[in-house]
């Protein structure tokens, strides 16, 4: 058997597995108890944030700490227009608002490299939160907003839908020539530019596409919290978690960040309920160990073990 039929058979198996997983996920709320839906909502939220983060930062190497900004824009969009328009449109507007903001911010700042870009994007989180607070204090005279509440099942299905779209988008980008170009930017940006890649365009567009999904997720999640204020919406925690989850899972493959997000979210929920006081301590320790001993994440570890296993198999024959 030649290698192409082997890989296509292998990828067919993968597609079937993925399809089965999604079908199972679609039926979860019908059979699982209420808590499962809540847990799955948290997991899906982090998976979406992490996969969107990796879509831009994983390949280009530009460390964005802006997820909280785009997530928060979605949350506020939902709080402002929720109930006035049909919900799918609200979610779309949440995503689009983040998309537009990312285009603007990206065009202004993606010339900054390395640590400067990371610090700028982090500053943006603070800037957004404090500007909104100023606005609410001095202009509208309010503090925070109530959000139209949705049922857990509705939230769950919307997030699942966003996740499927996101996964398809990420997969198509990875496979296309633009995926290769994004990688080339991450490895040697100058050479990419002199090889004909329109680096600025590509960076800004990808940054904005990833922001769209974060914003859409924010618009959906807002309805779970009933009340939001600038510091709930623009919480830096949502910037750091995707980074941590992506590193923990491993960024080499598309499913690495997903695995990282699922495991860490579950771990977080588990620790909060079982060891409320020690939760951050245990969580932090696990992260430190993971960063020290798993430089390529869980997926990297699994690949290493698999390679060792198959080498041994070859050695025997």
């Amino acid at each position: 058997m030649d290698i192409t039929t082997l890989t296509s058979k292998k990828s067919l198996v993968w597609w079937v597995i993925i399809l089965i997983i999604f079908i199972l996920l679609a039926f979860v709320p019908l059979y699982a108890p209420g808590y499962a839906a809540i847990l799955l909502i948290s997991i899906l939220m982090y998976v979406i944030l992490t996969v969107s983060w990796v879509m831009f930062s994983g390949s280009t190497g530009y460390m964005s700490l802006a997820p909280a900004v785009f997530f928060g824009v979605g949350i506020y969009a939902s709080a402002i227009i929720g109930g006035k328009l049909p919900f799918p449109i609200v979610v779309g507007i949440g995503g689009l608002a983040s998309f537009c903001l990312a285009l603007l911010v990206g065009a202004l700042t993606l010339r900054l490299r390395g640590i400067y870009f990371a610090i700028f994007t982090f500053g943006l989180v603070m800037l957004m939160a404090h500007s909104l607070l100023f606005w609410e204090l001095h202009v509208t005279g309010t503090r925070g907003r109530f959000v139209i509440v949705m049922g857990y099942n509705t939230i769950y299905y919307y997030l699942l839908g966003i996740f499927v779209l996101l996964l398809l988008t990420a997969y198509l980008i990875n496979r296309s020539r633009f995926g290769l170009a994004l990688q080339s930017i991450g490895q040697e940006e100058d050479a990419a530019a002199h090889t004909g890649v329109n680096v600025t365009m590509l960076k800004v567009t990808t940054f904005a596409i990833s922001a769209f999904f974060m914003g859409a997720a924010g618009a959906v999640m807002a309805t779970k919290w009933t009340y939001i204020d600038p510091f709930i919406a623009f919480n830096p925690f949502y910037s750091f978690m995707p980074v941590v989850m992506a590193i923990f899972g491993g960024m080499g493959q598309l499913f690495g960040p997903i695995i990282g997000a699922v495991i860490l979210t579950y771990l977080e929920e588990f620790l909060i309920t079982k060891f409320a006081e020690l939760y951050m301590l245990i969580f932090g320790t696990i992260l430190v160990i993971a960063i020290l001993y798993l430089p390529d994440g869980l997926v990297g570890l699994i690949q290493k073990m698999w390679n060792r296993y198959s080498e041994r198999k070859h050695a025997d024959t």
């Binding site: 020539r177 290769l180 990688q183 080339s184 490895q187 040697e188 050479a191 004909g196 890649v197 329109n198």
Partner: peptide
Amino acid sequence: VFADMPALSNVILGSYF
């Protein structure tokens, strides 16, 4: 060079863009 890419992909990028 694009360090982590195979030699072939380094060149393909030029043909693409």
